[in-house]
Design a protein around this nucleic acid. Structure first.
Length: 504
RNA sequence: GAGCCGGUAGCUCAGUCGGUAGAGCAACGGCCUUUUAAGCCGUGGGUCCCGGGUUCGACUCCCGGCCGGCUCACCA
């Protein structure tokens, strides 16, 4: 590190960068100075683990961010941190040499990325520590770190500068590590169950497969508008037509709607489809998936706390029929909801507190009423099954009741976590359902589904009997982490830009 | 989109019933070779979110705006 000899280093000058006070002029020049000669091949967690059962492996070389610094005359204690661990380092003047020690004291700051080499030992208090033989400054941190004890609490800073959240708040690291495990275990379970992972278009000429408002973009070369997908459903079913027995896709969906504690404009969904399955198979499979996630991600603990509720995620889950739940809560039966004059239904909805029912179609009214009276009680995991057909344009008619479809939603903590059905595979029927959606659209439902004629054509080639399901990964992560905001489980949640006055 | 609440040092916060602000940590200068929220002595640091109004005087009161949080509406 010849850099210590540089004459142009002026350690006591301060300067500002974009209005923020940052560190020494001299230290800034150090910023690009060091290249790692030997990238560390180990991590802090690994070192601790190895040393535990083989204390002879005491020579280590490891790198991390300096998060504590306690200089005391001729020796310095500090802690370096990486994603998975924290390790104490001990620097003695007589060991590293006078010149080196002076350099370290002068130019190394809290927050810097450093590499250390040395021998492991235990201090008087028993803490595993590296006795530093050499310390290399690998990168400068020009800003002071957030407060060591309280971390960073301002949620706005935590979301905008997530890297600071990750450096300073161990809880944040824990949540995102859990999310990574969750995704890995879901993938493992799906692949082990015979599913093929696929990728389907995010830019779609028709945004279909769900009821939602899409984002619109434009392709210059093709000179056409495209939509960011609101769901991958219709593409995945085309793949079942094409011969895949089982497929799944994990990816972002985009819906141009509100932002709140359970909604982010882009969110992660897993959708999966299995030929020859029906919604009963899907329920069994979903329970097995949950059991796997409890065993792995939650390390066997099936109880989580969410919004003040203790929720037990252990299957089997409660099953309740859609109209049974409505009847129990309202005293009205299926025929009332599906066949009573719409004015009467609107009047009833008004009594329950549904806003502006005059603007709503029958399907929307039923949906609203269900949300008002049904969902509030659904804290423990519950499959709500046998939805009305008019709410489910892509689901197959129920084998016992033509008013219904073979569909369920998995609701946990009042959140819709999963949505699944025996897929409608009759092209003529699907065409009719799309036409009904167009009517809904004309009747004022701007989220009614779009007609997709190529999808109809695919069905004409024969979609085997198929079961399909979507699971909201972000919400699942919320449950597993026990946090009540979707922003706590999305690394970079949607935010308005900083300095809003400058826009336009 | 509506209502309520918030924005003070790099961070966590206090404060001013209207007279231009403090603490701890962090930083800077010293002392200190087993400390760990190290310790001891000393020092510096703020357009009090932005703009306008009222006032002799605004960080404080009023109005508008920006950003965020919560609740509601919409949605998964």
């Amino acid at each position: 590190m010849a850099i210590t000899d540089r004459g142009d280093i002026k350690p006591n000058e301060t300067y500002t960068f974009k209005g923020k006070l940052v560190r020494h002029e001299g230290k800034l020049t150090l910023m690009d100075a060091d290249i790692t000669e030997e990238p560390p091949e180990t991590t802090i967690a690994e070192i601790k683990h190895t040393y535990d059962f083989d204390p002879k492996q005491e020579e280590v070389a490891v790198a991390g961010r300096l998060v504590a610094w306690r200089p005391m005359g001729k020796a310095i204690f500090g802690h370096i941190q990486d994603l998975l661990g924290k390790l104490q380092i001990y620097i003695r003047k007589d060991l590293v040499g006078e010149e080196r020690f002076k350099f370290i004291k002068e130019f190394v700051d809290l927050g810097d990325i450093v590499g250390v080499k040395g021998k492991l030992f235990r201090t008087n208090t028993g803490e595993l520590t590296v006795e530093v033989e050499d310390l290399q400054l690998l990168s400068k941190c020009l800003h002071p770190l957030p407060e060591k004890w309280h971390g960073i609490k301002d949620v706005e800073v935590r979301y905008r500068q997530r890297y600071l959240d990750l450096i300073a708040n161990p809880q944040a690291r824990q949540i995102f590590l859990m999310r990574s495990r969750l995704l890995a275990e879901i993938r493992r379970f799906m692949v082990d169950s015979g599913f093929f992972e696929v990728e389907t278009p995010i830019l779609q000429p028709i945004a279909s497969g769900a009821n939602a408002k899409p984002f619109v973009t434009h392709h210059n070369y093709l000179d056409m508008d495209l939509y960011l997908r609101i769901a991958p459903e219709l593409y995945l079913k085309r793949l079942i037509v094409g011969g895949y027995p089982k497929v799944f896709e994990i990816g972002k969906n985009f819906r141009n709607e509100g932002v709140d504690t359970t909604h982010n404009p882009e969110f992660t969904m897993m959708e999966f489809y299995a030929a020859y399955w029906d919604y009963n198979d899907l329920m069994k499979f979903t329970e097995k998936l949950f059991q796997h996630l409890i065993d792995t991600v939650l390390e066997g603990k099936s109880e989580v706390t969410f919004e003040g509720h203790r929720i037990n995620l252990k299957p089997p889950f409660r099953v309740v029929k859609y109209f049974d739940l409505l009847k129990e809560k309202t005293g009205k039966d299926k025929d009332f909801f599906l066949r009573a004059p719409i004015e009467e239904l609107r009047k009833f909805a008004t009594e329950l507190g549904v806003k502006k029912p005059e603007a709503l179609t029958r399907a929307k009214l039923i949906d609203k009423i269900f949300e008002k009276v049904g969902e509030p009680e659904l804290i423990q995991p519950t499959f709500v099954i046998d939805f009305p057909k008019i709410l489910s344009p892509l689901a197959k008619e129920h084998r016992e009741d033509p008013d219904l479809v073979e569909r369920f939603e998995l609701i946990i903590g009042q959140m819709e976590i999963g949505n699944a059905y025996t897929e409608l595979n009759d092209p003529k029927e699907q065409y009719q359902r799309f036409l009904e959606q167009l009517k809904e659209k004309q009747a004022g439902d701007d989220e009614a589904m779009e007609m997709d004629t190529d999808f109809i054509r695919a069905l004409e080639y024969g979609l085997p009997p198929t079961g399909g399901e979507g699971i909201g990964i972000d919400r699942l992560a919320m449950l597993f982490a026990g946090v009540n905001s979707i922003r706590e489980v999305i690394l970079f949640p949607a935010m308005r830009p900083e300095g809003g006055e400058e826009k336009k």
